[in-house]
């Protein structure tokens, strides 16, 4: 059966909102929950200790909890924080940078490889398994066909049972990371005087072209897809290929959608993709495209 996972919160939400969200997650159908700040080290509403406390509660609620690490690590301080995540001593870590893979491999600890780890072929995937990878979240730009080609390769077939495959199936896609904070820039603030203004935008700031098409969403140093990615109509095509489906937290409706994905994975008929949601990547097209296929 397809497991349901809740990705780390990519936006900067006030402490109480995060708390409320995880109270609901604890009661939801989620199997796996990823916790941690993966976008900007300046966001400190929740610190590692808060995440760890939350992790214990979620574990008591029966969830498989994973700590997600920072994606773009720039300073020695970022690296120290990464070490603290990796050395937590209890929970599996999602490595979002090769630096994390290096530390976890050295410590002999199992890990989840996040979508920003560049794994595009079976030879790389096999190495990741050798380094200790137990679950693989494939890069967001890959298609079902690309995934299937990797998994059916002889280099993978004999080790396929040793790791799980996870796909980001719902939410705004993280597409790029920069030294520059685009949210601060949108308010004409320099990054070092950002005043953590991204807390005002719980779903980021949309960017439109001059013809009114929503192309991107600014989320601090991260740029996301302008539209929400949604593979609800594609769930049946994930059978025997995908082990876990990730929903990425949005301010509204995340867990309702998670429940729909769960129902769809059981073969029940559910409300389909919303108008405006995109699914191009899964169909080997531009991510921004909407493909009207069902099944796969």
């Amino acid at each position: 059966m397809l497991k349901m996972s809740v990705g780390p919160i990519l936006y900067f939400w006030p402490k109480e909102q995060v708390q409320r969200f995880y109270t609901q997650v604890a009661e939801s159908e989620a199997d796996i929950v990823y916790l941690g700040e993966t976008v900007c080290p300046k966001r400190r509403e929740w610190r590692l200790d808060d995440y760890l406390a939350q992790a214990h509660q979620l574990r008591e609620a029966g969830k498989d909890v994973v700590l997600s690490t920072m994606t773009l690590l720039e300073s020695p301080a970022d690296l120290r924080e990464l070490r603290r995540y990796c050395d937590n001593g209890e929970f599996t870590v999602e490595a979002n940078d090769v630096g994390a893979i290096g530390l976890l491999r050295e410590a002999g600890l199992p890990f989840v490889a996040g979508a920003a780890i560049n794994c595009y072929n079976p030879q790389t995937l096999r190495q990741l398994v050798q380094f200790g990878m137990q679950r693989w979240l494939m890069p967001v730009e890959l298609s079902r066909e690309w995934l299937s080609q990797i998994l059916s390769h002889p280099d993978i077939e004999d080790i396929r049972h040793t790791f799980e495959v996870e796909v980001l199936g719902f939410g705004h896609l993280p597409l790029a990371w920069s030294a520059r904070c685009f949210t601060a820039r949108s308010e004409n603030r320099p990054k070092d005087q950002c005043d953590l203004c991204c807390i005002k935008y719980p779903s980021g700031r949309p960017v439109y072209n001059q013809e009114g098409e929503r192309l991107f969403v600014l989320n601090g140093i991260q740029t996301q897809s302008g539209d929400r990615y949604n593979l609800i109509n594609e769930v049946s095509g994930m059978n025997r290929l995908v082990d876990a489906l990730r929903v990425s937290p949005e301010p509204e409706g995340t867990l309702e959608w998670l429940a729909r994905f769960r129902a769809a994975s059981r073969g029940e008929s559910v409300e389909g993709r919303s108008p405006g949601d995109v699914n191009g990547y899964w169909h080997k097209m531009a991510g921004i495209v909407q493909v009207e296929a069902t099944g796969r």
Binding site: P139, E141, L142, L175, A176, T223, S225, G287, I288
Partner: peptide, 21 residues
């Protein structure tokens, strides 16, 4: 390049083709 190289899928989001793929 203003994004961390090797970690930018903006191009494939709009065209299907990116530096990585």
């Amino acid at each position: 390049c203003i994004m961390a190289e090797g970690r930018c899928y903006l191009s494939s989001y709009m065209t299907g083709e990116s530096p990585n793929n």
